[in-house]
Amino acid sequence: MAERQFFKATDPQEACDLLAQYGGKARLLAGGTDLMVAVNQRQLSPEVLVYLGDSGLNYINSESDNLVIGAATPFTDIMGSNLVREEAPLLAEVISHIASPAIRNVGTIGGNLANGSPAADSATALLALGASLKLVSKAGDRVVAVEEFFTGPGETTLEPTELIQEVIIPKKAGEAKWAYRKLGKRKAQTLSIVSVAICCPLDGGQCQGTRIALGAVAPTPILASEASALLEGKILSEGLIDESAKAAADASNPIDDVRGSAWYRRRAIEALVRQLLAQISA
């Protein structure tokens, strides 16, 4: 049996060095809420673990136009942060619907994203907020928009030697309205059947740069760009909301699975986008 190794990274650079050294063999461990499920179910038997819990990636900072969140920050800390509630309340709201308190206490935003699930709840919030991710490796760092990050179910643009260092969220501009809903099989401790996050900056009542993000209805979390574009420069009206909701449903590409059917997901997306836009316009 190959020797198994455990490392506690004290800073992101050390983690990058280890990833470079062990290549694809190394797995990052933060909260472990996804990783350890896979380990327990024998889908994964990591040879090298790099623990990020003490790597200095647990922070929430305000940096000029952006809110910057370290990738290993647990959900509970993000939810409870006044800075987040002030500058990105949508993110705090979305996180409050993830799993349950015990999972949020250790589950991290970086882990949620790196896992690459189409149903990753934090991803819909970040998509709607126009966030980007700072990825680092021994070779250097790069910044990718969240919509560029996901490439397929369980797949992201992360290289095996790369890690997410931080999440960069543009601060809320002016009168940004937002709304979120998630449908699961029940009200807590549940994965999304569908989820919708909308960020809608209003300028004199007109939508300026609306972002409508959809979760669990495509191979990755997606932005419903056409549904947003329809609203650009316009005041929300019942007819317009209807049109946008239909466009959002068209943008989805859901599948049938253990949590719901494609038919239902499409319908639910339309309903949720309609309800949320109505809520925003009210």
Binding site: S100, K185, R186, K187, A188, Q189, L191, D257, V258, R259
Partner: peptide, 16 residues
Amino acid sequence: DQPTNLGDYAIPTTMD
């Protein structure tokens, strides 16, 4: 599509 865990076999939580 049979559920294989207690997340997908959704018995009620306190919130339900």
